[in-house]
Amino acid sequence: MDTTGRGRPRFSWLTDRWLAGLFVSPTLIILLFIAIYPLIWSLSASFTDRTLLSRPDQINSVGFENYVDLLNDNRAWQRFVVTAQIVVPSVLIELLLGFAVAMLLNRKFGGRGVIMTVILIPMMLSPVVVALFWRFMMQGDGILNYYIQALGGQPVLWLSSPSVIPWSVVLVDVWMWTPFMMLIALAGLSAVPKYLYEAAEVDRAGAWFRFRHITLPIVTPLLMIGIIFRTMDAYKMIDTIFVLVGDRGGAGRAAQTAGLYVYDTAIKGFDTGVGSAYGYIMLVVIIALANLLIRQLNKVKG
């Protein structure tokens, strides 16, 4: 029988390409509504004097006025400084600590699985939960100060002294996200082929050489990816600080990051237009930063 003469199937118009599009479309539509639409909406809002209470007919376009005002406003820039004060130490400490713990765990020993699980718990908890119990521990008469005093130290005003608050946030972030860096560093360490260390042993290489010329070059690209992830994530941090010291970043706005400033302006200050503009400035800054880091990553990979 001639197989080509079977007649046209009913769905002959449904080519593979169409079918593929059909399968992707639900996701695409949802994505459009929850990501693309708000993005465009807030972009357009950033060029208006829209407030939370504006009726549609009260909204006027103000051009780049919001942006110009913000870029000339020292308080706005101060928020980026505060953000950096928290992001830079957090990521650095997480990197060093995570790498160190990974080096310790990168061998076979009894109970390794249990220890790994315990270490990973912090990053699986909700940031709100973490911030909440740290707030209890950091209170003036909390358990941290109890131990400090028991060891003969002076109590620390973890949550009320403007000079200490950023470091309290760093401490919580480090506690929560060091496991993430450790996980990434561990993946890098286990990718180092064993024979390289053996070659080094035959060649009488010292421990520093092994670390500097075998371990580090192979692990660095992965650590860079960890740094990029953590930087972007810490930069956007709101929830932890919100719960820990309040929505304005505590006394003297000591931990009011850029993200919290958007919240403060757009929601508490009702100023949707200015808040949106600030959000877009944040976006440009983080894109620039991420690009710098990714360029570094490509450099260490080559």
Binding site: P193, Y195, L196, E198, A199, A200, E201, V202, D203, R204, A205, H213, I214, P217, I218
Partner: peptide, 20 residues
Amino acid sequence: RPGDRDIAFVFQFYALYPHL
């Protein structure tokens, strides 16, 4: 230890030091 035996070892996967 291997380094004190005065031997040289050539590995199947060359085992060259990266970045040197």
